[in-house]
Computed example of a mutant assay.
Amino acid sequence: MHDTAAPAPTPPLPDGLTTRPLERSDSRAVFELMAAQERTDIGEVAIEEADIVADWAKPSHDLAARSVGVWDGEALVAYAELMGADRADTSVLPSHRGRGIGTWLAHWLQQRGRELGSTVVGMPVPAGSPGDVLLESLGFRVRWNSWVLRLPEGVTVPERALPEGYAVRAAEPGELPVVHEVLEDAFLEWSERQREPYDDFVASTTGRPGFEPWNLRVVLDPEGTVVGVAVVLVSDDGRTGYVDRLAVRRDQRNRGLAQALLVDAFARAREHGTTSSELSTDSRTGALDLYRRVGMEVTSNWVNRAIDLV
């Protein structure tokens, strides 16, 4: 059993700062805020504006009810957002750290989570970062670890032959429902969350800004049924191919399908001009050793810190 967090008064923000719910037109400002924080904390920018736009386009997400921006005049200097039941995201502009803004955001998230019926609220932060240290001091526990992995320059994932009769190709539009089913069935084996609505899935994949049909890869069994899926994206600067999601149906595992999908995804990304290959995984999946075995190296370590609300 974990100690639960008793409601506490939200501390005041520094004088001169104002707040309001975010609007879709704020996506660029949020991206620039998050990018500034990532440059400071991990030395590079991982977030893309398309990630934010796609999340905000999900029909189930009420941005006005689940977000807050902190403004210094016309400049967005911090924000917090609650997606679904328990996933939070926050950022504070590095130049505004040490003023109590992060503490205010943490209290705001707990209060809003309780109002929305959440039992726990958690968020990813780089391990050892100022955000990690702050959340620990506020009573947020580590739920799981996650890692970003990259293929070193000149290294490729070893080829893995598909079983006879299996094939990898781009998904066809009519296959989207089964693609969604394969992904959700696999991820819900270890992820404690509600099943993602199909319309939310569409908004974050085919509806994502910049999506092209080749980004959604599938493995077909000899009967032509989708049994594995990889979602591969290309960074805004065109240099990195990133496998956003990878899943194989439970009864089709241990046949090399995941590795074949990984090889295909990175190869297709290279065909579209990328020179770097990345993905992320976390401690709930047990996949870290698999990715290390095929030559990938950890480039950053994150922790998901959470606090119980009831």
Rank of each mutant, 00 (worst) to 15 (best):
D221Y: 05
G238M: 10
V218N: 04
R141D: 12
D308K: 00
E38S: 08
V298I: 13
N301W: 15
R250Q: 14
G154P: 09
G207T: 01
P11V: 07
D3I: 07
H107N: 13
A35Y: 00
G73L: 12
G69L: 04
S95T: 14
V243M: 11
R249Y: 02
N215L: 06
L109T: 05
L176N: 01
N145Y: 14
Q37K: 12
V182A: 02
L93V: 05
R28H: 08
P213S: 08
E48N: 00
E74Q: 13
L162V: 03
R255M: 09
P163D: 06
R268Y: 03
P130W: 00
L257R: 01
D55F: 13
G238P: 05
R169P: 01
R99M: 14
F201A: 00
T240N: 05
L22N: 02
P173F: 04
D26N: 01
E136I: 03
F266P: 02
R268T: 13
G256A: 04
V92C: 12
V202E: 00
P7M: 06
D251I: 00
P152H: 11
I307K: 06
L105V: 01
E164M: 10
L188E: 03
R169D: 09
T40K: 12
L162M: 05
L257H: 02
G174F: 01
D26A: 10
V218H: 10
R249D: 14
E81W: 02
F201M: 04
V155D: 08
A170R: 11
